[in-house]
Amino acid sequence: MDSTVRAAILDCAFQWAATGGRLGGNLWNRLTVLAEEARRAWNTPDRGIWEVRTAGRPFTYSAAMCQVALDRAARLARRLDMPGDADSWATEAERLTEHILREAWDEDAGALTEHLGPGGGLDASLLALPLRRVVPADHPRMVATSGAVATRLGAGGGLLHRYLPEQSPDGLAQPEGAFVLCSFWMVDNLAGQGRTDEAAELFDTLCSYASPLGLLAEEIDPATGEFLGNFPQALSHVGLVSSAVVLGRVQRGVRPELSTRACFS
């Protein structure tokens, strides 16, 4: 099981518990196994969220998803008074956040990069770190990263590339379009940084790309506006809905849960 799946399962369980749900002993035992796997797997080379066809690397996003798994396991154990190593999981999650901020940071690039250690390229998947409550949106290194992504991965018209294949080889022959979900992640980051007007403007721009039926593709050709990849793409619509919720909360005066204070509450 990869790090993204572990994180998703534990995060879903955490959200279930946060709304009053309970977990049986058998299910909890399985969840603790996932937490322990995350503790061991955070620096294991893999193919990352984009499932590249090149040699595995210790991707920053994958390490971050291990942080999510450990953090949610600790919170679940405490919230539901379940047996387990909650203090150790919480400590490991905090350590992983610090490790990511240190080891994925490239001073020359002025940004967090795609994998732990030197030599990584920019990767728009790191815009998801505040959404997963790994690094706050308003943390200085996250602000710098979102700015670098906007500048260097920007494809025009509010669109973003996931990465630049010439800097981050993916083993794929076809050209890369702009990945729609990444731009919605940028909306959420801008909102989390208090840049609400910019976030709302970007959101409106992205919605304007939808088909007459309100559907979005996986990617968009930034030169022509043509839809590329899967259509309709569920992830693009998940991003749209998530950003709409974030903006709606901000407009009602509710601070988004992407900031320093809320991220670690």
Rank of each mutant, 00 (worst) to 15 (best):
S3D: 15
R6Q: 11
I9D: 06
C12Q: 15
A13P: 14
F14H: 15
G20W: 03
G24C: 02
N29Y: 06
V33Y: 04
L34R: 03
L34D: 07
E37A: 13
R39W: 15
W42I: 01
W42S: 07
D46C: 09
D46L: 12
R47F: 00
V52P: 00
A55E: 12
R57N: 07
R57G: 02
A63Y: 01
A63D: 13
A63M: 05
M65T: 15
M65R: 11
A69G: 14
D71Y: 00
A73E: 10
A73Y: 01
R75L: 12
A77Q: 09
A77C: 15
A77V: 00
R79A: 08
L80W: 02
G84E: 03
S88Y: 13
E94Q: 14
L96E: 09
E103P: 11
A104D: 09
E107P: 08
G110Y: 13
T113R: 05
E114W: 06
L116I: 10
G119K: 07
G120K: 10
A124Y: 12
L127E: 03
P130N: 01
P130G: 12
L131P: 02
L131H: 00
V134I: 09
A137I: 12
A137W: 08
M142A: 01
G147N: 01
A150Q: 14
A155G: 09
G156V: 00
G156S: 03
G158L: 01
L159I: 00
Y163D: 05
E166N: 00
S168D: 01
P169C: 01
A173Y: 08
Q174T: 02
Q174R: 11
Q174D: 13
S183A: 12
N189M: 04
N189V: 06
N189L: 07
L190Y: 00
G194L: 07
T196H: 03
E201S: 05
D204P: 09
T205M: 13
T205K: 08
C207H: 10
L216M: 11
L216R: 00
E218Q: 13
E219A: 05
I220E: 14
T224M: 05
F227C: 03
G229H: 11
G229Y: 07
N230F: 04
F231H: 13
P232N: 02
L235C: 12
H237V: 13
V238S: 02
S243H: 04
S243T: 11
A244H: 11
L247Y: 10
E257W: 12
S259P: 15
F264Y: 11
